[in-house]
Nucleic acid binder design. Structure first.
Length: 726
DNA sequence: CAATTCGGGATCTGC
DNA sequence: TCCCGAATTG
């Protein structure tokens, strides 16, 4: 066992506060760490991993640590390795990357080919449309996301509970049809990366025991974002001897809309017996004046455990609420904040402008350059989602797996090869009848026209040449070296995959096609294709290399965009700021109807509050909140009332810029809580269904009465409606 | 089968 | 206002 300084603790433990130390040193039973924003949770997890290896002699391979984002996984890996280099051998991944690793390792048991590729939401929608040709694109998208949600809840097509949550007509049958179509491609969707491992672990005792024997310690970060399926995977992975430690903050759960269950964190101690709980409430990031505002917001939520953040940094000024005429003044105000900061010796990259919707970035993008403020836009249009990138990837995916119907549909006739809808369906139908090989079907299909025949055979020949360049399937990688989701070790003399990718893009005609698009529309498609080629340079030109490359691209979507590292202001949505911090933060667009939206229900409203809480707690030193009286919305100038969230902040916590704010309307909206019992002189008893600020009219309250009628009222103008109880 | 016009809808979005 | 998808037309 590694030595620690005599009579004391190892140096890397010094500097931890008592709660953090308790969390690191805890080792009996299981552990739930409730970690507030900025409380040093990543430090606790990484230190704990290093401590387990160094002081407890645990093999790095027996540790599994999962996060939700690649960024978080990379950071955890870096920080853990800087304390203890052998952490590189621990399994530190995202949930989905772990699922992919597990399924490739146990492909046969899962009924998959080991070269499977992963379908994203868009691909799932394509598959739905293939299964149900009569559906419109939006309908197919809705069904695809309902299916994804069902998988998030761990519900299979034969699950008895399916109807309880998914009331759509015929949902069970459609879900089942989608599943069989998906299985025929040999590929998986994102949900499968979680649910298939659960199934394998349940059904295969040998795999279950091997897995339990391997992972002695399982850690989960951002646990409040886990969904039911991930909870099931955690239970399936944890053997009787395993130590499970989860870290989360119920106040920062902002992904309910895609299946995240705060219940997972609340019921953790019941499911994992002997659980200790440690709360981290010391905040190392922000001044108390910022935390006070954040607390005043999140306190309004009912479904929470309850924590109080205390700042360790003393000082700091009161945050500013800027009341502005319109979105143009908002930009000008932000420029002033940036200038003032830079004049004090700060840099542009210290400042972040946060907003609710991506559309809001436009005003800033237009105005900041002329004001001499460089900016960096985060996460708007992602690299992998671009048309040209998806086209190129589809060719590669088909080369990797010739049963990939989605990829085939995408690129068989792109650029146009004279293969129309009829020919396409004929080829796919034939492939289905003969084991699924679409390339073989394309080569042999009895095409209707000579043109289609020629197109199909040239496409088939392209795929054949690509296959040849990739060579035969080589030996499976040694998966007992878990490593990061890194490229397989590469012989420096081996051909690089980038050569094959370049070949595919050129020979398929996609390069010419998109070059033409660039000239017509002034886009950057060819440059993006070049970037994709570069990204493939780290992989060998083999089937395994290709499959690893496709997985990395699919699972690490933050990939590239190029422009990092320069000194620029960050423009970012509130969702995207999770885990980040900035010395100076501006939260823009605090208008009712924009944030929160008027039609949000109660639970959505609580989630929006948590989102506001996340945004507020990104600020280290300086916080500005802006409200515009008027704003351009879909090309129209509209009047807006202040967000009801502003009324939830005690006024004395804020400095006002541009005049005091009349918050009476927003306050009134807060008073008429959804569900509150009311009495109306003419209509009798009822309850509030909805309360929304309504401009000059104050607040508009929708009431459902015992008589069965639902009516709207403006309390500002009627005295007949009164609140009986909340 | 490809090009053009027309109309509806428009949040956030991990992997 | 603007963008994407579907329908219509050549």
């Amino acid at each position: 066992m590694p030595a620690s300084p005599r009579g004391g603790q190892p140096g890397y433990l010094s500097g931890l506060n008592p709660e953090q130390l308790e969390a690191v040193l805890h080792e009996r039973g299981n552990l739930l760490i409730l970690a507030g924003a900025g409380s040093g949770k990543t430090r606790v997890i990484t230190t704990k991993i290093a401590w387990l290896i160094r002081e407890r002699g645990l093999a790095p391979e027996s540790i599994l640590a999962v996060t939700f984002t690649n960024k978080a996984a990379a950071e955890m890996r870096d920080r853990a390795c800087s304390i203890e280099p052998s952490c590189a051998r621990a399994n530190l991944r995202t949930f989905h990357s772990f699922g992919a690793w597990f399924l490739r390792r146990n492909a046969a048991a899962a009924g998959l080919d080991r070269d499977f590729t992963i379908y994203d939401d868009d691909d799932s929608t394509t598959l739905v449309r293939a299964a149900f040709p009569d559906m419109s694109r939006p309908e197919a998208g809705k069904l695809a996301s309902a299916i994804a949600r069902a998988k998030d809840y761990g519900l299979a097509p034969d699950s008895p509970e399916l109807e309880r949550r998914f009331a759509e007509r015929d949902f069970r049958r459609r879900y089942a049809d989608y599943e069989s179509r998906l299985r025929a491609t040999g590929n998986v969707d994102f949900g499968d990366l979680i649910s298939l491992p659960v199934r394998v672990l349940d059904r295969e005792p040998a795999i279950r025991e091997r897995t339990h024997a391997r992972f002695r310690v399982i850690l989960v970060d951002e646990y409040q974002d886990s969904n039911v399926a991930q909870f099931e995977l955690l239970k399936a992975l944890a053997g009787p001897e395993a130590y499970v430690c989860v870290v989360g903050d119920d106040d920062q759960s902002i992904y309910r809309f895609r299946g995240a269950e705060v219940k997972n964190i609340l019921s953790f101690p019941d499911v994992f017996p002997g659980t200790s709980i440690v709360k981290l409430e010391r905040n190392y990031r922000s001044y108390q004046s910022i935390l006070d505002i954040a607390s005043s917001i999140v306190e309004k939520n009912e479904g929470r455990i309850g924590k109080t953040l205390r700042a360790t940094r003393k000082g700091g000024e009161k945050p500013v609420l800027a009341v502005l005429r319109d979105h143009e003044e908002e930009v000008a105000y932000c420029v002033r904040v940036v200038d003032a900061h830079v004049r004090k010796g700060g840099s542009f990259s210290d400042v972040a402008i946060l907003y609710r919707t991506n559309a809001q970035s436009l005003a800033f993008e237009r105005a900041l350059p002329s004001a001499g403020v460089p900016y960096r836009l985060v996460g708007a249009l992602r690299f992998y989602e671009r048309e040209e990138v998806k086209d190129a990837l589809a060719i590669l995916a088909l080369a990797s797996n010739r049963r990939d119907e989605v990829a085939f549909r995408r690129v068989a006739n792109k650029p146009a090869r004279g293969i129309g809808a009829a020919s396409l369906e004929a080829v796919i139908g034939m492939a289905f009848a003969e084991g699924g090989d679409l390339v073989a079907a394309a080569a042999n299909a009895p095409a209707k026209s000579a043109k289609a025949r020629a197109g199909l055979s040239s496409f088939a020949s392209l795929m054949a040449r690509l296959s040849e360049r990739l060579g035969p399937g080589d030996e499976p990688p040694d998966d007992d070296v878990p490593g990061p989701s890194a490229p397989p070790a590469m012989d420096p003399h081996a051909e690089k995959l980038s050569v094959v990718v370049e070949y595919a893009i050129r020979e398929s005609g996609l390069l010419e096609f998109h070059k033409g698009q660039d000239e017509v529309a002034g886009t950057q498609k060819v440059a993006n294709l070049d970037e994709l080629v570069n990204a493939a340079a780290d992989y060998p030109a083999t089937r395994t290399g290709l499959s690893a490359f496709l997985e990395a691209v699919e699972l690490d979507r933050a990939m590239s965009s190029g422009d990092s590292g320069q000194d620029a202001v960050t423009l970012i949505t509130m969702h995207n700021t999770k885990g980040l911090e900035f010395p100076v933060v501006v939260i823009a667009g605090m208008e009712q109807g924009l944030f929160p939206r008027d039609d949000d229900g109660d639970e959505d409203l609580e989630e929006q509050r948590r989102l506001f809480y996340v945004a507020l707690t990104r600020a280290k030193d300086e916080l500005h909140i802006t409200y515009c009286r008027r704003r351009l919305f879909r090309g129209r100038i509209m009047d807006y009332q202040p967000s009801r969230f502003l009324a939830e902040v005690p006024k004395e916590m804020l400095r006002f810029f541009g005049g005091k704010l009349d918050l009476s309307a927003a306050e009134a909206a807060g008073k008429w809580k959804t569900g509150a019992a009311v009495y109306h002189d003419d209509h009798g008893s009822g309850y509030v269904v909805k309360a929304a600020p309504a401009g000059e009219a104050g607040v508009c309250v929708t009431v459902h009465f015992e008589t069965g009628r639902t009516l709207q009222f403006f309390p500002k103008f009627t005295k007949k409606l009164e609140i009986i109880s909340d």
